[in-house]
Computed example of a mutant assay.
Amino acid sequence: MKRDSGFWMLQGFGWLLLSYLVYAQAIPAFDYDMGVAMGTQESADVITEVGTAFWYGFALGDLLVYIPLLAAGLVGYWLGKGWGRILLSAALGITAYWPIVCLAAIVAARSAPGWNLVNETPYWIVLPLITLGGAWGLWHVTR
Rank of each mutant, 00 (worst) to 15 (best):
G73S: 06
W98G: 12
L79K: 15
K81E: 04
Y97F: 04
A71F: 13
A71P: 13
L92S: 06
I100Y: 09
T95K: 14
T95W: 00
W83I: 02
Y97S: 07
G57E: 07
A104Y: 06
C102P: 09
G93E: 00
P68Y: 09
I106N: 07
A72R: 13
L79R: 15
L103R: 08
Y97T: 10
G76Y: 15
V65K: 10
G84N: 04
G84M: 13
G93F: 05
V107H: 02
L74W: 02
L79E: 06
I100L: 05
A91W: 01
A109C: 10
P99W: 02
G93T: 06
L92G: 11
L70V: 08
W83G: 01
V75I: 09
T95H: 13
G82T: 15
L74Q: 04
A91E: 02
A96F: 03
R85G: 00
A90V: 09
W83F: 06
Y77Q: 13
L64W: 13
L70S: 07
V107P: 02
I86L: 00
I106F: 11
I67G: 03
I67Y: 12
A71T: 11
L92F: 06
L70H: 05
L92E: 00
R85Q: 07
G76W: 15
I94R: 15
A105E: 02
Y66I: 09
G73A: 01
G57C: 05
G82K: 15
P68D: 07
I94V: 15
C102T: 12
A59I: 02
I100N: 12
Y66D: 00
L88G: 05
A105Y: 12
A90C: 10
W83M: 04
V107R: 03
G76C: 10
A96R: 14
P99C: 01
I67L: 10
W78C: 08
G80C: 09
P99K: 12
D62W: 10
L70E: 04
R110Q: 03
G57D: 03
V75R: 07
L70Y: 10
W98H: 13
A108W: 00
T95F: 05
G84K: 15
A59K: 02
D62A: 04
A72P: 04
G82I: 12
L87Y: 14
I100D: 08
L103Y: 02
A96Q: 11
I67H: 07
Y97E: 04
G57V: 01
I106D: 00
W83S: 01
G80N: 11
C102D: 12
G73C: 01
L64H: 08
S89A: 02
L60R: 11
A108K: 05
G93C: 07
K81S: 01
A96I: 01
Y56V: 09
A104G: 02
A72V: 10
